[in-house]
Design a binder for these strands. Structure first.
Lengths: 328, 328
DNA sequence: GCTAAATTTGCAAACGTTTGCAAATTTAGC
DNA sequence: GCTAAATTTGCAAACGTTTGCAAATTTAGC
């Protein structure tokens, strides 16, 4: 049996509503009785029963987060930054994995709603995910993907601009035949990056040299075969923009297996800046927004909409930076 | 305003306790009224209010998990397996990061208790973590670390045996001067691995060739300097057992920077089998228990103790396997 | 169609809090 | 020490459920 507010009330011989108020600092006057109540609460080892509290206040101190896969560094790193900021504000984060499955995404939504979270941060499975999140009565934020859906706030980097910059960077480094390697299952980010790539190539009069390819999957060896295929083309690509780091790993393996040196014969730039991408064995040149900022903005958007449910939809574009390493 | 059980009762003209029972399948007889209630519940978009439910049943469908850092693959991979199994059983997992900080570990504990979780799975910060978890009234499991504390269940791999096997494996591959590279901050796992290493060396009459070293940190470049130092010794180590994959990454970088080839001049075996360790650029020979099993056992231990709070302390040792790749 | 057994029903209380209200107490100012 | 203002107090209701109990209803078996 855990100790309740009533136990404290009995010991201190006051009504339990008084105890509640003292514990919540609603009795502002400093006096011996308050101290005495606080002291016995502590002595008895009282822990507020959040569940009961929530039932009446309707305030929730947990934020739901729906992601495709925690065990994937990209998501776990962002999850961490959401958690850090949320915890700092006194919120917990409840995470649900969708395993890239729309059905699981909708059950994740339901189970979070049922725990009445203060809001839900979603890193969507795909372009159709927004269908799952219409007419929710809790604050909702898409993280990492924009959406046309007018009622969903989102925070995202400027994929088009960043990819244009990356492409120009490779051109500047002397690449002339460039390829963008995306993923078969397309989504906004993937398409925007491709778009940025093509646009930059066009601007530099290199549109005929622009190759667009698709990897089977993001996981190793998803881009391996496709990369080998690309490298036997004439002219051979000398610069690759890859959808993300994860995919770049197998692209790099493909380059090596063709007998080329990554970063010399073929330059590679990708996206995400995973922690491991910094390892000397990988040393990937990669583009990423600040993950701290991404997480912070997402949480702030939730809290903002909680305060003003009817506020206009807000789309935040965070800046990204390129981390230059050995591959490009 | 979300729809409650009373709304349904009003529509169907029954008492709300009846609705509750029908919704929970306590009315076993199949009849039109039950169907009608179920149907209106659905039509009204009723979502059970778990918070209220929990208040009376005292059953919780969330399991707390305390880990040092989700953004670290080792933890996120295990977290995933805990979540997968827990979700499958109808539980949610609430994750708290400690950032390797004992104080944060204890606040994590408090905030989970306050949400009255069904139990807590802990991947402890250090050897003193058990102090934080005495006399809890919820089921508790240590994952990945054993403990002397008699009231804490735990699940762990047999670190001593696995490291002995690994050492013998390297000896079998011709290594004669071996080193174990651990971490400065020691814990059970680290010490057990060192112990297994020394024991195997002794059994093979190689105890004089056994070198024990400590890296500054697990993160890159934690083991870099120490590895370079080791490799200038005479005789030079030709086989390394490294505390974990993360550390092995910088150890490998150190080996390369000395001009040696990993997997030929110096063999490396480590622990965890992170997803990235399988990449061809890394291709680490590594030892790990099944993460699915680890997660499953941890959750089962929680549920077992929930059912029988007074059951004897249970310590589960799961088997591990070595994944042989290019480094050793 | 009757009887006994099985099931369902509604009432009321409970879970552990917060909070509006009116009454009681304390404080500040003189 | 009085008065007015400020604060605190306890009561009771509420949040949305579940559940024990006794009464009511349905079912099964004949």
């Amino acid at each position: 049996m855990s100790v309740t507010i009533k136990d404290i009330a009995k010991v201190c011989d006051v009504s339990y509503s008084t105890v509640s108020r003292v514990l919540n600092g609603k009795n502002v006057r400093q006096n011996a009785k308050n101290d005495w109540i606080l002291a016995t609460a502590k002595a008895l080892g009282y822990k507020p029963h959040n569940i009961a509290r929530q039932l009446v206040t309707k305030e929730s101190d947990t934020i739901g987060m729906i992601i495709p896969d925690v065990s994937n560094s990209h998501y776990s790193e962002i999850t961490k930054s959401v958690q850090d900021y949320a915890n700092w504000l006194g919120y917990q984060v409840l995470i649900s994995n969708t395993d890239w499955d729309l059905v699981k995404e909708s059950t994740a939504r339901d189970s979070l709603l049922t725990k009445n979270v203060a809001g839900i941060i979603v890193m969507p499975v795909c372009d159709r995910s927004h269908l799952i999140f219409r007419s929710l009565d809790v604050p909702l934020v898409f993280l990492g993907t924009r959406t046309e859906e007018k009622h969903i706030d989102y925070v995202v980097m400027d994929n088009i601009q960043a990819t244009m910059d990356a492409t120009e960077y490779l051109i500047g480094r002397g690449c002339r035949t460039l390829a963008y390697i995306g993923r078969k299952i397309s989504n906004y980010s993937s398409r925007d990056r491709m778009e940025g790539f093509l646009r930059a190539m066009k601007e530099h009069g290199l549109s005929r040299e622009a190759i667009v390819a698709s990897a089977d999957s993001l996981e190793f060896p998803g881009g391996y075969a496709e990369t080998k295929r690309l490298l036997t083309q004439v002219p051979r690509p000398d610069g690759l923009i890859v959808f993300n780091d994860q995919l770049a790993f197998s692209v790099m393996a493909g380059i090596i297996s063709c007998g080329y040196a990554v970063g010399r014969d073929v330059l590679v730039v990708s996206f995400d800046d995973l922690q491991i991408s910094a390892l000397p064995q990988i040393s990937l040149t990669t583009i990423t927004p600040s993950k701290e900022e991404l997480g912070r903005v997402a949480v702030d958007l939730i809290l903002r909409r909680q305060k003003e449910p009817e506020a206009e939809r807000k789309a935040v574009i965070v800046s990204s930076k390129m981390v230059k390493r050995a591959t490009g």
